[in-house]
Simulated assay, not measured.
Amino acid sequence: MKKIVLETERLLLRAYEADEIGALHAILSDPVTMQYWPAPFTLEGSQQWLNTNLKRYETNGFGRWAMVSKSSGQIIGDCGIVLAELDGQPEYDLGFIVAKEFWGKGMATEAAEACKQYAFSQLGIKRLCANMAFDHHASRRVIEKIGMTKEKEYVNARNRNILTFLYAIEND
């Protein structure tokens, strides 16, 4: 039985399982889906992403979760919260990746809103951030739709030294 963490109208967000590398790699290796990342992932990179998240579940009780379409049962991306260093500061970072064939359907917004609510109500997080490349307009729209506001811009050494926007929201 797969551990479902969150359920929305159209999605299940759940822990990855070790044998799901194929479905995950199909998304993370796609050059269009991953165009705002330093590069599409190699199989080794996808395996590391999976292993890192499996470890995060054990250590923190959260991480990036598989985003599963309720209608098809297919993994269509991932979404979740990780502890990350953003512009030199430790932050709770909300991130998501959606396979290109599901872009423009509101899936990222649905998943991100659920993760934001989970961060505040279940994890007791007081501040949630998100970061994206300056030209990743779709990600910016998602983050703005869930109430985050741009806090600053910085040069991101972890992503080709490109201009990166940092968004945040506080849990009142």
Rank of each mutant, 00 (worst) to 15 (best):
M1V: 13
V5S: 03
E7I: 14
E9W: 15
R10W: 12
L13S: 04
R14D: 07
E17N: 11
I21V: 09
A23E: 11
A23P: 05
H25C: 05
L28Q: 01
T33V: 06
M34V: 05
M34E: 00
M34K: 05
Y36N: 02
Y36W: 10
Y36F: 11
Y36E: 01
A39K: 14
P40V: 02
T42Y: 03
G45K: 03
Q48F: 10
W49H: 08
T52P: 02
N53T: 04
L54E: 01
T59N: 08
T59Y: 04
T59W: 04
G61L: 06
F62N: 00
F62R: 00
V68C: 06
V68S: 04
K70S: 10
S71M: 11
I75W: 01
I75M: 10
G77W: 00
G80W: 00
E85C: 04
D87F: 04
Q89K: 15
P90G: 11
E91A: 07
Y92H: 05
L94F: 07
F96I: 14
I97P: 00
I97Y: 03
V98S: 01
A99Y: 06
F102K: 03
W103K: 08
G104M: 12
K105C: 12
A108G: 06
T109S: 13
E110I: 09
E110K: 10
A112H: 05
A114K: 02
Q117P: 03
F120A: 02
Q122N: 07
G124F: 00
G124M: 05
R127Q: 13
L128G: 00
L128K: 02
L128D: 01
L128I: 05
A130N: 02
A130C: 07
A130R: 00
N131D: 12
A133Q: 12
F134N: 14
D135H: 10
H136N: 07
A138Y: 06
A138D: 09
R140W: 08
R140D: 13
K145S: 08
I146L: 06
T149F: 09
E153Y: 09
Y154W: 11
N156C: 12
A157S: 15
R158T: 11
R158G: 12
N159V: 14
N159W: 08
N159E: 11
I162G: 05
I162H: 02
T164C: 11
F165I: 08
F165S: 05
A168D: 08
E170N: 12
N171A: 09
D172T: 15
D172W: 08
